[in-house]
Amino acid sequence: MTIDATPTTTTQSRASVATAGDAAALVRGISPVLEVPFTSSGQVDEEGFARVVQYVIGTGVSSMMFPGFASEFYKLTEDERRRLLAILLSTTGPRDDVAAIVAVQDHATMVAAARSRDAVEAGADLINLLPPHLLSPSRAAIVGHVDAVLAAVAPTPVVLQYAPSETGTSLDAEVIGDLARKHANLRLVKVESSPPGRLIGELADAEPPLPAIEGYAGVQLPDAWRRGAVGSQPGCSFTEIYVEIWRLLSGGEVEAGEDLHRRLLPYISYWMLDTELIIAAEKRISYRRGLIGSDYCRAPSHVLDAEELRRIEVFLAEFAELLPDLSEM
């Protein structure tokens, strides 16, 4: 499967819509991070990735992100990343109801700015920016990095990803608020602190108010929702469950939404003990559902043991009413 990465007129026009700020309004509710399927020999499965994109759109979400931790971005070559991004943007490009959020994790400021500009030119609707964290840069250096990337892609909307557990990066509402006041295109913050609720509330009370989305597999989704989060950004192998939780909460059926989340919590709280563990678990779920042809993870990775595999089967049985067979996609 080969897809031309050259931007089409359609994707360019979508980028123009994004720079007007409209795309940020699509980052509401559940916004999955796309997984990358590999063949059993470890090669990128491009057709499988295209199925993943179509599946996620089919769940009714209005945005999706690539490549994040759930995409194993740190195990992809530059060429693989480029080809997969072309597949995503060729699918979202003709649509005005789904936004493609392209993640940038480069440590060097000039590289991050260049990659962000390239993504916008290719048709990305928003940029998700993970601040630098290798070798513990100073807060001033981190702020300078974010400042430069925001300026480089303005007025394209940017989501600032705050993931202290994975990166050790320390920011606060005051610093983020200062950046938002300087850069109107800082439109959302993905909050993955533990717990995320206080920062979500502080951002909502800032001037101007800054919407937040919760990450971290939705472990704190109900609390984040109560504190004003506009969405959640989990992995994508059981998107339907998250969509239903959000539908119930936002539709006034709060008790039912919290009950469904309580059923899910024992699984995701265990899987989120380690990033590689939840990647392996989600790939296994996608494989068992028939979405992808292999649950291969590139080494080094977490190898699921017999009990972890058994619990995935329990999970699939418990939530069978929400998780249809995807093998006929």
Rank of each mutant, 00 (worst) to 15 (best):
L186D: 03
E244T: 12
T9P: 01
V158Q: 07
R311H: 12
H145T: 04
G123W: 03
V44Q: 01
I292P: 07
M1C: 08
T2R: 06
T167E: 10
A70P: 02
V44R: 01
S232M: 06
V44W: 01
V52W: 04
E282I: 00
S194D: 14
A184T: 06
L134A: 10
A99W: 02
V243A: 11
L265K: 10
A103G: 03
L130A: 09
L85Q: 09
E328Y: 00
A141R: 01
E328S: 13
D223W: 06
T59L: 09
E308K: 01
S286Q: 04
G197P: 01
G293M: 01
G231I: 00
V36Y: 08
I57T: 00
T59G: 11
S31D: 10
K182G: 13
A206E: 00
T39Y: 04
D97V: 14
I268D: 07
A141P: 01
W271K: 07
V219K: 07
A114Y: 09
Y74C: 02
R28M: 04
Q12A: 13
S165A: 14
L326E: 08
T10N: 03
E202K: 15
E174T: 03
A154D: 07
V314T: 15
V52M: 05
L248W: 08
D22L: 15
I268K: 03
Y270P: 01
G235N: 02
A256P: 04
V120R: 10
A50I: 01
I176V: 13
E321S: 10
R288C: 13
Y267T: 01
E307P: 02
V158M: 07
P209R: 00
E258D: 12
Y287N: 11
H107C: 02
V44D: 05
V189I: 14
L171R: 01
L248Q: 15
L210E: 02
H302S: 07
